[in-house]
């Protein structure tokens, strides 16, 4: 008996360690593939097991998106109705109707076979600034401004060993918004001597594919007026729009984490009960 328990414990300990490592491999692979980019971790209201989006922040981020980014970046997967859904920016239905109505949407054909423009409705998607990708490229020196719908999940920084193992326990999932924030605040006029800038590109050491990015610095202080008294700085603008993009990429994040907490508590109690039951069942059996 002593013997068996010993090998079993060894086996299990090592198995668990092995499994952890193997799981970790996944992320190491993923992260390396993205790039060797490191970003600074920021504080986000939606991080951690009880994370929630800050409604005011999402509304500000939406303001930055509409006033600034939407000139070049589409948000194809979102509809106006998403703005009023639970866990989101928390606009009222009337507000969203008004937002939608400002946009003109091509509809049709009517009974004469003609296409016509009408004001946007709740179910309409956000309009794209470009008719197609080619037009977007042509207007931007060949660099297509990426769609915003999933960008916060499609970008990640290198975590490396052993950080990615700790990430499992700290639930670090904010690499995307961290990267976006880093990029937006990372523009620098001090181009290192060894970097030869190509015409039309801007120096930004926080860019995922090199240090030269086609997008000019999009934000400047006091460019947008906040009605809630938040600081009108590049830092705050970047933070707000990154949070908004995280919501756009994962609109059910709040619901997911809240449900996760309940599920885990339930499973832990259930596991405890099963363990006690198992002990009772085996109480008089040596094994």
């Amino acid at each position: 008996m002593r013997f068996k328990d010993n090998t079993m414990t060894t086996f299990l300990t090592k198995t668990v360690a092995t499994a952890t490592l193997i799981v970790g491999m996944a992320f190491s692979g993923a992260a390396i593939a993205a790039s060797e980019l490191h970003v600074e971790e920021q504080d986000w209201s939606f991080a951690g097991p009880f994370g929630k989006f800050d409604q005011a922040q999402l509304q500000r981020g939406f303001q930055i998106y509409t006033e600034n980014c939407s000139a070049c970046h589409s948000l194809n997967l979102l509809s106006f109705r998403n703005l009023m859904q639970e866990g989101g920016p928390g606009f009222s239905e009337a507000e969203v109707r008004a937002i939608a109505a400002e946009v003109s949407v091509l509809d049709g054909p009517d009974s004469d076979g003609e296409m016509f423009d009408r004001p946007g409705r709740l179910a309409d998607r956000f309009p794209s600034p470009w008719a197609n990708e080619e037009q977007g490229r042509a207007s931007n020196n060949g660099a297509y401004p990426p769609d915003f719908s999933l960008l916060a999940k499609a970008r990640a920084a290198t975590r490396g060993f052993p950080t990615f193992v700790f990430d499992i326990f700290t639930q670090y999932q904010e690499s995307g918004p961290d990267y976006i924030y880093g990029l937006l605040t990372g523009y620098s006029a001090d181009v290192p001597a060894d970097v030869e800038m190509l015409p039309g590109l801007n120096y930004n050491p926080h860019y995922i594919s090199g240090v030269q990015i086609a997008m000019a610095p999009p934000l400047s202080a006091d460019q947008h007026e906040y009605s809630d008294g938040s600081p009108q700085t590049v830092d705050q603008y970047a933070r707000d729009v990154a949070a908004f993009m995280m919501w756009a990429a994962e609109p059910h994040l709040v619901e997911r984490k809240a449900m996760g907490f309940r599920v885990l508590i339930f499973l832990l109690i259930f596991a405890g009960l099963l363990y006690l039951t198992k002990r009772k069942v085996f109480a008089s059996v040596k094994h």
Partner: peptide
């Protein structure tokens, strides 16, 4: 196991029933 009775048996039955209930809820 089956011949156990009295308080001990009641506690055990309670445990079994609770555990089964959790399974059903799950």
């Amino acid at each position: 196991d089956t011949s156990a009775s009295g308080e001990d048996g009641t506690r055990r039955d309670f445990l079994y029933v609770t555990t089964a209930a959790f399974g059903v809820v799950a």
